[in-house]
Amino acid sequence: MSDKLLEVQDLKTYFTITKGVVKAVDGVSFYVNKGESIGLVGESGCGKTTTALSVTKLLPNEGYIDSGKIIFDGKDITNLGDKELSNFRWKEVSMIFQGAMNALNPVKRVCDQIVEAILLHEDVTKKEAMERVKELFELVELDTNLMFSFPHEFSGGMRQRAIIAMALACNPKLIIGDEPTTALDVMVQAQILDLINDLRKKLHMSMIMITHDLSIITETCDRIAVMYAGKIVEMGNTQEVVENCFHPYTEKLINAFPNIYQERKMVDSIPGDPPDLYNPPKGCRFAPRCHKKIGDICDSVEPTLIDYSGKEHFVACHLRRNS
């Protein structure tokens, strides 16, 4: 068996709207090794959440996978039926959602919500499931006396812990975190990131971390994939990409975060807006906003993701080919 837990090949996820088709994810390929974490980073609307939803097959009705393959643990799951899917979710892949406030049912006790998920996927009695919830609460460092509380009695950080507990309920091999710490305070965010890192080590899970905050990825992920307008523009080892980034977009994105240990200078912004994915530009999608454009080739030919350095550092940019 290979080391690759999840392999996504040339994934194209489209949405139908009244006037046509929006290409939200357009030819994305990446893989996640066992026990590894990869971060997807990009601006809002670049397709990072859609990529994750395609993997878990949770796309809304208008969305569909046009082409491409998703291989999980050696098995092609692109065209699984509903029944097989329900076995696949939770047990193989589970998701931590963005809004900790909205991801829990407000009229059900927290433990009941987790028990519900366990009973649906595993052949256990309710009592055993309750025991499992207790273990999970201990795992995420929540007071087990709070098991029978309602979500509104929890603070934001506690809710996020409960959601992590829920995601771990059926021992998944892969966890997808969709902006798991965005709505939280700095200190609580640090606590949750520590927790996720510890749990990943303890349980040998793989993780896909989706965020717009680069600094979170440098803290938690082994590899990073930078997305822009439905495509991956740069991918590789986190440290390698951050230190030797090549794509002009990555460069701009990194410079958009202030560094308090360096000289105080205004951070960068990227002029212009991301392209309309209903009618994306023909060549490189970043070309209209790019500050290093080299000429017509950028407007007409779409660059492909190529590993130029031989260190698994992939870049999709014409400039790189020339230099």
């Binding site: 700095v186 640090a190 803290e219 230190e243 975060f257 560094n259 308090i260 240990y261």
Partner: peptide, 17 residues
């Protein structure tokens, strides 16, 4: 300040969570 993560900068100090 200790839990602030800087992009492209290794931690100089220990984090106090």
């Amino acid at each position: 300040t200790s839990v602030l993560a800087m992009v492209g900068e290794k931690r100089k100090t220990e984090r106090i969570v």
